[in-house]
C-alpha cells in the first residue's frame, strides 16, 4: 500500500500533532512524494466520510429519563443517609441507656455502702473488755482500791 519511509508520520501530520519543524519538513516531502500524497488523500477521504456521518440527536424523552434517574439516585442516597442516621441514633440510644443504667446501679451501690459506713460510725460502741484474765482483775481491783483510799467512795 505504502512504500515511503515517512508514511508512519502521515497520521500525526494529518492530525496536526507534529512539531512546527517536523510539520514543515513533511509538507515539503509530501509535495514531491506521490505515495505520501496518495496516502494523505485517502486519510482525508476516510476522515471526511466519518465526520459527515449524521448521527441522530438525543431524543428529548431520553434526556428526561436521565434527569429522572438522577433524581431517583439522589432520593435513594437521602433515604440511605436517613437510614444510617437512624441506625446511629438507635445505637447511641441503646448505648446511652446502658450507660445510664450502669451509672444508676453504681450510684445505688455507692449509696448503700455509704449508709452502712455511716450507720457503723454512728452506732459504734466501745465494749470494754470483760475482766476475765487475772491481770485485768488485778488492775480493776487496784483502781477500785486506790479510789477508796482517795476518798472517792
Amino acid at each position: 500500500m505504502t512504500v515511503c519511509i515517512y508514511s508512519h508520520k502521515l497520521n500525526a501530520y494529518y492530525d496536526n500533532e507534529l512539531s512546527h519543524e517536523e510539520h514543515h519538513e513533511l509538507e515539503q516531502h509530501i509535495r514531491g512524494c506521490p505515495y505520501c500524497y496518495r496516502d494523505l488523500e485517502q486519510l482525508q477521504r476516510i476522515s471526511g466520510l466519518i465526520t459527515s456521518l449524521s448521527i441522530p440527536n438525543i431524543p428529548d424523552a431520553m434526556v428526561k429519563r436521565l434527569h429522572q434517574s438522577l433524581d431517583s439516585l439522589r432520593e435513594k442516597a437521602l433515604l440511605r443517609m436517613a437510614r444510617m442516621l437512624l441506625s446511629a441514633a438507635l445505637v447511641l440510644l441503646v448505648l446511652g441507656s446502658i450507660l445510664v443504667l450502669r451509672i444508676g446501679v453504681n450510684r445505688q451501690m455507692a449509696t448503700a455502702s455509704d449508709a452502712d459506713w455511716e450507720k457503723t460510725a454512728v452506732t459504734l460502741q466501745f465494749d470494754a473488755p470483760s475482766a476475765d484474765t487475772p491481770e485485768l482483775q488485778f488492775a480493776q481491783w487496784l483502781i477500785a482500791d486506790l479510789s477508796k483510799e482517795n476518798g472517792n467512795e
Binding site: 448521527i55 441522530p56 440527536n57 438525543i58 434526556v63 436521565l66 434527569h67 438522577l70 433524581d71 439522589r74
Partner: peptide, 22 residues
C-alpha cells in the same frame, strides 16, 4: 446544588449520546 448537575446533563447529553451510539 443538584440543579447545577442537571445543567451539565443538558449541556453534554447530546454530544455524549452521539459518541455512545457510535
Amino acid at each position: 446544588e443538584e440543579s447545577a448537575f442537571h445543567e451539565l446533563v443538558d449541556r453534554h447529553a447530546n454530544a455524549l449520546f452521539k459518541l455512545a451510539l457510535s
